[in-house]
Every structure is written in C-alpha cells, then in structure tokens.
Simulated assay, not measured.
Amino acid sequence: MSIDLKIRGNLGQNITLKKIQRSGGEEVTVLNFSIASTEYRPDNSSGERRYVAGHTEWVECEYWERRAEHLASILVKGLPVTITGRESIGSYEKDGVVHRTRKIRVEDIYLNLDSTRIESVTLRPPRPNEADDAPF
C-alpha cells in the first residue's frame, strides 16, 4: 500500500548520500534525511493573534537517483522545505519488540522561501543557450 503525502517542515539532520549496488550490478544513489514537521495552532489567550507550537512529527525520507548528489550539496539541517512523495510502512524487530516505521520516498522537494529562516538564495549564471550562438 502507498499513500501520497505532502509534508512541510525543517530538515532535521544533515543529508546522508549513499551509493548502493543493485542486484544487476548497477550502482544507484540515494539521499536519506529526516524532516521535523511541527503542528502550529492559534492561541488567542493573550488577546493578540499568535500561534504556538504543538506536537512535532519526525518523518524519514529517501530521494533516489535523479539529482541526489546535487541536492546533497545544497540541503542543510534546519532548512525549511516541503516535500511530496509516497509513504511506505515497514517494520523491524529489536529486543523481541516489533517497531513500525514510516518512510517517504520523495518525488519532489521545494524550499519554503516565505520562511524567515532563509536569509538569501544564490543562483548560478544561466547556461548559455545554443540558440544564442546562431548567426540569425
């Protein structure tokens, strides 16, 4: 069973980048990270409109192939992001107790640019367009 999800939160740890050998000998890259997603609720008890933090849910994430190496170089702990992906449920046994796990296989990751935690964003110069080189 899989469930599509959208999660907003902060990267909870530095990214780990791994190379994994598939059964056919092909090497693939996977990016592992966690997101801390905190529930905020309105609190009007002081007479002013404000929000207070509630429960924080930690979600383990994995991002396979595509731009994994590039993302590993720019994503850092604390960065506010929104991810979309599919949830997978698993389990493992430790000391005779079965623990349930939740993991998101990330399809897309976006920076939350409206966050006050982001001070600046720097882009590389655009790639030269081959059409610009045409004599017409």
Score class of each variant (00 low, 15 high):
residue 71 L to M: 07
residue 93 E to C: 06
residue 89 I to D: 08
residue 71 L to T: 03
residue 101 T to R: 07
residue 78 G to H: 04
residue 73 S to W: 00
residue 72 A to L: 06
residue 93 E to M: 09
residue 110 Y to P: 00
residue 75 L to M: 14
residue 69 E to F: 02
residue 70 H to M: 15
residue 99 H to Y: 15
residue 90 G to S: 12
residue 79 L to V: 05
residue 103 K to H: 00
residue 91 S to T: 08
residue 111 L to D: 05
residue 75 L to F: 10
residue 108 D to C: 10
residue 76 V to G: 04
residue 96 G to V: 02
residue 81 V to A: 02
residue 86 R to C: 03
residue 107 E to H: 09
residue 73 S to C: 05
residue 95 D to R: 08
residue 68 A to R: 05
residue 90 G to T: 05
residue 107 E to L: 11
residue 93 E to P: 06
residue 80 P to C: 03
residue 91 S to P: 02
residue 74 I to G: 04
residue 72 A to Y: 07
residue 107 E to D: 15
residue 85 G to W: 00
residue 67 R to N: 15
residue 108 D to L: 05
residue 110 Y to H: 14
residue 90 G to C: 07
residue 71 L to A: 04
residue 74 I to E: 02
residue 92 Y to K: 10
residue 92 Y to E: 04
residue 99 H to P: 09
residue 73 S to P: 01
residue 77 K to L: 02
residue 72 A to F: 09
residue 70 H to L: 15
residue 88 S to M: 10
residue 104 I to K: 02
residue 79 L to W: 00
residue 87 E to S: 13
residue 83 I to Q: 08
residue 77 K to Y: 01
residue 106 V to T: 05
residue 68 A to S: 14
residue 68 A to I: 06
residue 96 G to P: 07
residue 96 G to S: 06
residue 96 G to F: 04
residue 74 I to H: 00
residue 111 L to M: 12
residue 75 L to I: 03
residue 83 I to P: 10
residue 77 K to C: 10
residue 72 A to M: 06
residue 68 A to Q: 04
residue 100 R to L: 14
residue 82 T to Q: 13
residue 98 V to F: 02
residue 103 K to P: 07
residue 66 R to S: 15
residue 105 R to C: 11
residue 84 T to S: 14
residue 78 G to C: 05
residue 99 H to N: 14
residue 80 P to H: 05
residue 90 G to Y: 01
residue 77 K to N: 13
residue 81 V to K: 00
residue 80 P to R: 01
residue 104 I to V: 13
residue 103 K to Y: 00
residue 92 Y to G: 08
residue 97 V to M: 10
residue 111 L to K: 03
residue 77 K to D: 06
residue 97 V to F: 11
residue 97 V to H: 11
residue 87 E to Q: 13
residue 79 L to C: 11
residue 91 S to G: 14
residue 76 V to F: 11
residue 82 T to A: 12
residue 105 R to M: 12
residue 66 R to I: 10
residue 101 T to S: 13
residue 108 D to Y: 09
residue 97 V to G: 08
residue 95 D to T: 04
residue 101 T to Y: 02
residue 67 R to G: 09
residue 98 V to E: 13
residue 104 I to E: 00
residue 91 S to M: 02
residue 111 L to A: 13
residue 71 L to F: 10
residue 67 R to P: 01
residue 73 S to F: 01
residue 109 I to K: 03
residue 82 T to G: 07
residue 99 H to S: 10
residue 97 V to S: 01
residue 69 E to P: 01
residue 74 I to M: 05
residue 110 Y to K: 14
residue 71 L to S: 03
residue 77 K to R: 13
residue 77 K to I: 03
residue 97 V to A: 10
residue 104 I to T: 06
residue 103 K to D: 09
residue 78 G to W: 01
residue 105 R to A: 15
residue 86 R to F: 08
residue 93 E to R: 09
residue 95 D to I: 02
residue 67 R to T: 12
residue 88 S to L: 07
residue 86 R to V: 09
residue 110 Y to E: 15
residue 92 Y to N: 08
residue 101 T to F: 01
residue 68 A to F: 06
residue 93 E to V: 12
residue 105 R to I: 15
residue 80 P to Y: 02
residue 107 E to C: 00
residue 71 L to C: 01
residue 84 T to V: 11
